[in-house]
Design a protein around this nucleic acid. Structure first.
Length: 271
DNA sequence: AACACCCTCAACCGCTCAACT
DNA sequence: AAGTTGAGCGGTTGAGGGTGT
């Protein structure tokens, strides 16, 4: 085995594409279709590696690619999808017709990352009022697996890196009903592995609750909540009194997420 | 006008994964 | 089962344009 030699090692052209190269590549793909990238340059008469051709086609030449600025709606969708999927740019791009993974990745890195305001916290509407005990009880009743807190072994109180994969509960199942019907479950199985409330506190305290054995912890941010680093505190000590709770899906790592479930969620009409 | 710095985004790199032998 | 290969993905780079001094 071995990696294919890069373009420079086999005397192929690198860098920006010329208009002529674009024309040749487009004409070739129009006749022969996509695929066979390895052999494409030779057949098309391009002094490029197949990888480079694929990238140029996928990110720039495809006719369905949408040009122009990202709209506010698209930006909102990117933010929501990023909260759900993390840096899975191709999956995110799949939900934005005409946009490429590269474009979205660039947009995120250059524009959205700087905004440093939690899109999750700011965009989730308050729909349900729960007391802390009610919310805990509700979470306990959930049929979904409760993952351990990622920072279990971290001395308390601790600062933990928070996986960037929360999202609001889809409204497809109706307000206050967090358990899908059996037929819905049959379609959706398995769901993301953790469902717990997201608490909206008064003052500056915001967070998500983690159940870790008998202990409940929650994250606490300062209201700007950049989505990456937050403080972990014991829930009983953090609760300011009255709370509103919404349901979110949380996972301790993006790898825990089941892509079929996500696809199902994303394909739901409400989404 | 000249230079430095910043920003954007197309392109590249290195890796993983699935399909195939 | 193990090796090979191509496709695809996400992180990173750097050219070029814009802006500030």
């Amino acid at each position: 085995m071995g990696r294919s030699p890069c373009c420079s090692k086999v005397g192929l052209k690198r860098g920006a594409w010329t208009a002529l190269e674009d024309k040749i590549l487009t004409a070739y793909i129009k006749v022969h279709g996509e695929g066979q990238w390895k052999n494409l340059p030779k057949r098309a008469g391009l002094k490029r590696c197949g990888k480079s051709c694929r990238l140029r086609w996928m990110n720039y030449l495809r006719p369905e690619i949408k040009r122009g600025n990202i709209s506010l709606d698209e930006e909102d969708l990117i933010v929501r999808l990023h909260n759900l999927l993390g840096n899975r740019w191709s999956l995110i791009a799949g939900r934005l017709p005409g946009r490429t993974d590269n474009e979205i990745k660039n947009y995120w890195n250059t524009t959205l990352r700087k905004k440093a305001v939690s899109p999750v916290i700011s965009s989730i509407p308050l729909k349900t009022n729960y007391t802390h005990s009610q919310a805990k009880s509700r979470a306990k009743k959930s049929k979904w697996t409760v993952s351990r807190c990622a920072a279990k072994s971290t001395p308390f109180p601790a600062t933990v890196t928070r996986p960037h994969v929360t999202r609001a509960k889809p409204t497809a199942y109706g307000s206050g009903n967090i358990v899908p019907s059996s037929s819905e479950k049959a379609q959706a199985q398995p769901w993301p592995n953790l469902e717990l409330p997201l608490f909206h506190g008064s003052h500056s305290v915001l967070g998500e609750e983690f159940l870790d054995g008998a202990d409940a912890f929650m994250t606490r941010g300062d209201g700007t909540f950049n989505g990456n680093t937050t403080e972990l505190v014991r829930t009983s000590e953090a609760m300011p009194g009255s709370w509103n709770a919404d349901y979110v899906f949380i996972t301790n790592g993006i790898d825990d997420l089941d892509m079929d479930s996500l696809t199902y969620l994303l394909d739901s009409e409400d989404w």
